[in-house]
Design a protein around this nucleic acid. Structure first.
Lengths: 261, 261
DNA sequence: CAGTGGTCTAGACCACATC
DNA sequence: ATGTGGTCTAGACCACTGC
């Protein structure tokens, strides 16, 4: 690790010193001279190597952190980020045959991938829908929704928060109101209630996390989130659920299949 | 604008001063006390309001910037970010009926949305595929690919770079080698060459941009990118194109439809 | 304890925008 | 000329980690 050789600053360059330093370190990471988990040179080492003020090297380090390349650990050092296991979400993940095997989508898929899934902080409430959710569910006026909020973890590491909205007129007095929604999850319950599912739509955005999201997913600085909103439609064409999920972008690759017809 | 009222610091709080300042400004933005395009108080105004050092308010401002909430403009001030027009990409965007209308997907769709599309910096080369692309295209050994790189703009603002890889054995001597690939784009050409398209797969990741990407898309700090890799398959099940695209995440909402079967 | 990163100060000089 | 943000210095004290 003392093997790491960093270039000198180029005093003729217009590029600010802190950016040059960030460039050097980024290049070392890209070249794998510094591999995931490895410690970067300490601030004081960088200060003496480059002969600059502390704020300058901190600025450089902060650039890397905001790019999601490193994490600082107080009292220990700055480390090259190592990525959590990645979940690949395929477009058949809500296929009925999965549901009929009696497991909720998340659990089934994670076990297939050899990681330990868990779910925590399930909160179930009933409330008025936001205008956005009401529009997606075709609700109006007095209609209320059942809200199921939960957080998914892989190997104990949070990767996703999900909030489902189901019209109260459908969910009332069903197992959808229970923390454990039973085999196959709420989609299986919706089908038992006569809403045979036809298709889903998903809308995907990416952005930097809000503070709450960052906390709930224990996101490292510089890691964006996927914001995915899924709407489930039954065979009568009625929207029966909206699920709003925030996913750590470095725990996921989303995958879809599109017809050419 | 002098209307903006910011709270005082809470000296009893454990929360660092720069975070408290960032919180105040973020809240003002969320409440729309500061709306998109509006200028934030200048550094010196914040310094005198909070009675702190300049580096402290700069740190706070930088937090907001890294969250993508603001942009600094040298000599002018710090402004609440206003978003570019958003493109919604639907999962039927490569349907044959669009192709048969004689327009490439990007142009057709943008015109429908009332924005002026353009394409620039088309580079066409032939080279060895990267291992990743070779694997996706089922290529081996000597096989080469034709590479088409271009950049898409809306109303003059770059939103996406795309690089297509087509097996050279297919593309050679076709209009795919020309900067203007003709009516319906390269997918129409592939079909004329006997590769009737069957379906596409798309893999989506989100992350912070690399330096080059940031420059090519003129991204504001704190804006992540979608990294989307699409593979096109013909009706014989053969992969005939891989398209690697980087999209500004705040210019796009991706939308897909999934079957429940 | 020594070494690490986290926060903060009080200055300096520079480059860009506006009038 | 003035006000804005961009870069940089040279310190200070604090909190966390590890031995």
């Amino acid at each position: 690790m003392s093997e790491l050789r960093l270039p000198e600053l180029d005093p003729t360059s217009d590029r600010p010193v802190f950016k040059q330093i960030a460039d050097h370190l980024r290049a070392a990471i890209d070249r794998k001279d510094l591999s995931p988990g490895e410690r970067l040179p300490s601030e004081s080492q960088l200060i003496s190597h480059y002969d600059v003020a502390r704020m300058t090297v901190r600025h450089a380090l902060q650039i890397l952190q905001s790019e999601g390349l490193t994490v600082a650990e107080h009292g220990k050092g700055v480390f090259v980020r190592s990525r959590p296991p990645v979940r690949r979400l395929a477009s058949d993940r809500f296929a009925r045959h999965h549901r009929e095997e009696g497991k909720a989508a998340f659990i089934a898929e994670a076990e297939g991938a050899g990681v330990k899934p868990s779910v925590d902080s399930i909160e179930i409430t009933e409330s008025e829908p936001s205008p956005d959710v009401a529009a997606k569910l075709n609700l109006s006026g007095e209609d209320r929704v059942v809200v199921r909020a939960r957080r998914y973890l892989l190997n104990g590491h949070p990767v996703e928060t999900a909030t489902s909205y189901i019209p109260a007129s459908i969910a009332k007095e069903s197992q959808i109101m229970e923390p454990n929604s039973g085999p196959g999850g709420i989609y299986a319950r919706l089908e038992e209630l006569g809403h045979r599912l036809d298709h889903f739509t998903e809308e995907i955005r990416a952005r930097m996390p809000l503070r709450d999201e960052s906390r709930a997913l224990k996101l490292a600085p510089g890691v964006p989130v996927f914001h995915l909103v899924r709407t489930a439609y039954d065979q009568a064409g009625r929207p029966v659920e909206v699920c709003d999920t925030i996913m750590s972008s470095d725990a996921y690759v989303l995958s879809y299949e599109l017809p050419a017809r």
